[in-house]
Amino acid sequence: MQFPTSCSPFTPSNNSVQRIMFHVIAALLPAIAVQFWFFGFSILMQICLAIGTALLTEALCLTARKRDIVSALSDGSALLTALLIAIAIPSIAPWWVVITGTLFAILIAKHIYGGLGYNPFNPAMAAYVFLLISFPLQMTQWQSPFAFLDFSNAFQLIFSEQIAFDGTTSATVLDLTKTQLHLGQNLANIQQQALFGFIADKNRELINLAYLLGGLFLLHKKIIHWAIPTAVILGLLIPASIAYSIDNSLYSSPTFHLMAGATLCCAFFIATDPVTASSSKKGRLIYGLLIGSLIYCIRTWGGYPDAAAFAVLLANLSAPSIDYYLKGK
């Protein structure tokens, strides 16, 4: 009897890109559910728009590059990018914002560089920064924690940009803190405002807790490596604690920094993107610390209220150098 020959090992890999991507997507679901519970249908519409655009763009790019569409589409990477963009941008942003962003992410940030595995920047974060710079107005109007949007309200807001009722939009607490501090207010006074919940944004801090939950699930499943999220959080908490202990009327508390903005989402879902992160053991720690400390610096002294996207992009840029100099230590 004759047999085909090949090269060992003959045990097929028990892991797959698809498995990784869908685990991450699953880990995002609690956060999406919490957001839906507090903020209504707007988030679902953003997600649908992003996914639709992402899959379509991905398919077109793959056709243009003469690649196998089915296997590449089913890996879930485009789906994950879309999901991350949809949850990163303000949920009440007009429809063309999310579509432009997703298009940019898939076409420019991913396929121009050679597709999955070759992109130097996290596509979702590249798209976020692109949108923030191009459409600053739409990208800084957040849905108010007091406004629950039902289906028709959300539809009107996103597709015809008609505001259904007053008080749909508000700033985030990071934004508020920054502007009020500039006006010479005391932190203790600022935090008395209605936008604050227990620690940070009202309701939104619960979404962040859901991110944490999802992140722990990923750690448990060994989809992500513990080093990066830990380092991101430490990189943020250490300078925050130092500054807070020096002057707690000027600098927000470390717990505030942890629970506000995109810290937890970034630490567990964005910084851990393997393609653009550092892959050496010590490199991961340095990479994470860099992101965390950059987030703190930009939040405290920079021009933008939140900084996860910028921090991630800057760290992406330095990841190859980190790996090169550490040579896998």
Binding site: P4, F10, T11, P12, S13, V17, I20, S71, A72, D75, G115, L116, G117, Y118, H225, P274, V275, A277, S279, S280
Partner: peptide
């Protein structure tokens, strides 16, 4: 026989 399609490296480490 167990064959699998090769995908691009995602640098997971």
């Amino acid at each position: 026989l167990k064959q699998a399609d090769t995908q691009p490296c995602i640098r997971c480490g």
